[in-house]
Simulated assay, not measured.
Amino acid sequence: MSVAARNITKDALHTQAQHYSDVRSRIARGEKKPIVVSQAAADALTISELRQEVSLLQKALAKAQASLRFVAEREPHLRETEQRADRLELDLADARARILSQAELIKSINDDGEEVTDRRRTVPEIVTEVLERFPGVTWADVKSVRRTRELIGPRQACMEAVYDERKDLSLPSIGKLFCRDHTTILHAVRKVKADRGAA
């Protein structure tokens, strides 16, 4: 606070103190004369109230800034956790499909007692093979929310390939792998098959 501001504050406080002293003396004398508040005293009260309000706002701002710093510090951790959850979900879906596949294999032992081997590929293997036809497009691009023209074709091709090759996976399961709804998977399968039939 500057010297001039301190002097104004001292003057305002002095004026306010003088006003309160006048009021007390009038009350002590029993005067019924209406109390007239000087402009300086009124200004001093207003300035005091404004200072209190500014102090409260500064405290609220400090709390908000602390909250923003906390969120900013946690954001990378949250993003990393989300990516880890995506990977685990993909692994879980793949493991579930393999377990179902193994169960089918156990049931499908041929008459000679020889076990039929599982020839099904994993979802990442299928997607990797499809994306070889689309240079520059990655699995992360296919799963992303972006809907650019360059990504729609590869995304639909991947969905259709997984749907065709992995009959053990339901539409909702495939949808989870691609971060989409099951109706989107069904639309992609129909679109790719229609384009292939038209070609």
Rank of each mutant, 00 (worst) to 15 (best):
T117S: 08
I99Y: 06
K193V: 09
V162R: 09
Q16W: 11
L90I: 03
F70Q: 15
A60E: 14
R155C: 09
A72T: 04
T148G: 14
S173D: 13
G153K: 11
L92Q: 15
A66F: 00
V36W: 01
T148D: 08
T15F: 02
V192R: 15
A66G: 10
A17Q: 09
L169S: 09
L56H: 05
G175V: 04
E73V: 08
S108E: 12
K59Y: 06
I47Q: 10
V130H: 02
Q16L: 14
H19G: 06
T81P: 01
R180P: 01
E75Y: 00
C179T: 07
R79P: 01
R24G: 10
E132L: 02
D164L: 11
K167G: 12
R196G: 04
I185T: 14
R146E: 14
L171T: 06
R149S: 13
V145S: 15
R120V: 04
R69L: 06
I152Q: 15
L177E: 05
P76I: 05
R26L: 13
S173N: 02
A40C: 02
Q156H: 15
H182L: 01
L50P: 01
R121M: 09
H14K: 14
R29M: 11
P124Y: 04
N110W: 01
E132S: 05
V130D: 05
D168R: 04
E104L: 03
R196K: 15
L131P: 09
V71E: 12
G30N: 04
K63V: 11
R119M: 04
D195R: 08
S25C: 00
L78K: 11
E114C: 03
S170G: 03
T46R: 05
V37Q: 11
P124M: 04
H19N: 05
V137G: 09
V3C: 01
Q156E: 10
V54P: 02
Q65C: 07
E114S: 12
G153Q: 08
V37I: 12
R87H: 09
S108D: 12
M159Q: 14
A42D: 12
T183I: 06
V123L: 06
A85C: 09
H19K: 05
E165M: 07
A97M: 12
Q16T: 10
K193G: 09
A97V: 00
T117G: 07
D168H: 08
L92S: 15
K10P: 05
Q156S: 13
W139G: 10
I47C: 04
L169G: 10
W139T: 08
T138W: 03
Q16E: 09
R51M: 09
S38Y: 02
P76L: 01
R147K: 15
G113V: 03
S48P: 00
T81C: 08
C179G: 06
S67K: 06
P135L: 08
G175K: 00
T81F: 03
D164A: 13
A66S: 14
V162F: 07
A40V: 07
S108R: 07
S48R: 04
K59M: 11
K32N: 13
C179N: 13
L68Y: 00
V192S: 05
R121G: 07
V54R: 15
D43M: 01
